[in-house]
Amino acid sequence: MGFLMATAAFEELADDFEFLEDWEDRYRHVIDLGKAMPPLEDAFKVPATKVDGCASQVWLVPDITDTTFSFRGDSDAMIVRGLIAVLANLYNGLDVKDVLEVDAHAELGRLGLHDHLSAQRSNGVRAMVERIRAVAHAAA
């Protein structure tokens, strides 16, 4: 499996996280990312876009143009909205084939998120990544 460079947006995020040494600041930064993300219209909050395996309600709506992958998402939990924003930074703008090459676990590990997310939240992130990969796989 070839290692794929993260998107420029994710690299910038990783740099921001390096600058924020305190976990509380990182946590707040994730929440701010979620707040900055435009909300998903209610019309998209349907069972087909809902991600199972998350403690909170999560919806992911893929948007694939030609072979460029991106998605929008929303959640009823602020921290999860932030995690969706982090995943958007990681995946949006990639070619659908490249989405499958991303080692999300390793990339998110660079942000130091694993150590501080509850098991439930970690499972939720895993479920979101699996959904993203499945959509990209189907599109590729």
Results as ranks from 00 to 15, higher is better:
122 S>V: 08
79 I>F: 13
96 V>R: 13
7 T>L: 09
75 S>W: 12
140 A>H: 14
6 A>Q: 10
24 E>C: 00
20 L>I: 06
64 I>S: 05
140 A>Y: 11
22 D>L: 07
122 S>Y: 01
89 N>H: 15
94 L>W: 08
48 A>C: 00
7 T>W: 09
54 C>R: 02
67 T>M: 11
6 A>F: 03
10 F>Q: 11
63 D>M: 12
41 E>K: 15
135 V>W: 04
128 M>T: 12
1 M>K: 08
30 V>P: 07
86 V>A: 07
71 F>E: 05
131 R>F: 06
59 W>R: 10
48 A>G: 02
99 V>I: 07
89 N>G: 15
58 V>T: 09
14 A>M: 06
130 E>P: 00
123 N>P: 00
41 E>I: 10
84 I>G: 02
80 V>D: 08
22 D>S: 06
51 V>L: 10
93 G>I: 02
60 L>K: 04
54 C>W: 01
28 R>P: 00
33 L>W: 05
115 D>W: 02
75 S>F: 09
89 N>C: 15
84 I>V: 15
119 A>I: 08
72 R>L: 08
103 D>R: 11
10 F>T: 03
24 E>A: 10
57 Q>L: 14
80 V>E: 10
17 F>I: 01
64 I>C: 06
16 D>F: 00
7 T>S: 14
10 F>D: 03
34 G>R: 01
51 V>M: 04
90 L>R: 12
46 V>H: 01
36 A>I: 02
31 I>Q: 10
53 G>N: 06
48 A>K: 13
137 H>C: 05
5 M>D: 11
82 G>N: 09
15 D>T: 10
71 F>D: 05
132 I>P: 05
63 D>C: 12
118 S>P: 00
86 V>L: 05
88 A>K: 14
60 L>H: 03
23 W>E: 01
70 S>N: 07
115 D>P: 00
14 A>N: 05
50 K>I: 03
61 V>E: 09
17 F>N: 02
70 S>G: 15
6 A>S: 15
54 C>V: 12
81 R>N: 12
27 Y>G: 02
53 G>S: 10
25 D>Q: 13
112 G>D: 04
71 F>S: 03
12 E>M: 09
83 L>G: 04
104 A>E: 11
84 I>C: 02
103 D>T: 12
47 P>I: 05
66 D>W: 00
9 A>K: 13
81 R>P: 05
21 E>H: 08
97 K>F: 08
47 P>K: 08
134 A>C: 02
98 D>T: 07
53 G>K: 08
9 A>G: 06
71 F>C: 06
96 V>S: 08
32 D>K: 14
81 R>I: 09
57 Q>Y: 05
117 L>K: 01
11 E>M: 09
94 L>I: 10
25 D>P: 01
140 A>S: 15
91 Y>L: 04
120 Q>A: 14
43 A>Y: 03
42 D>T: 12
82 G>I: 10
83 L>C: 12
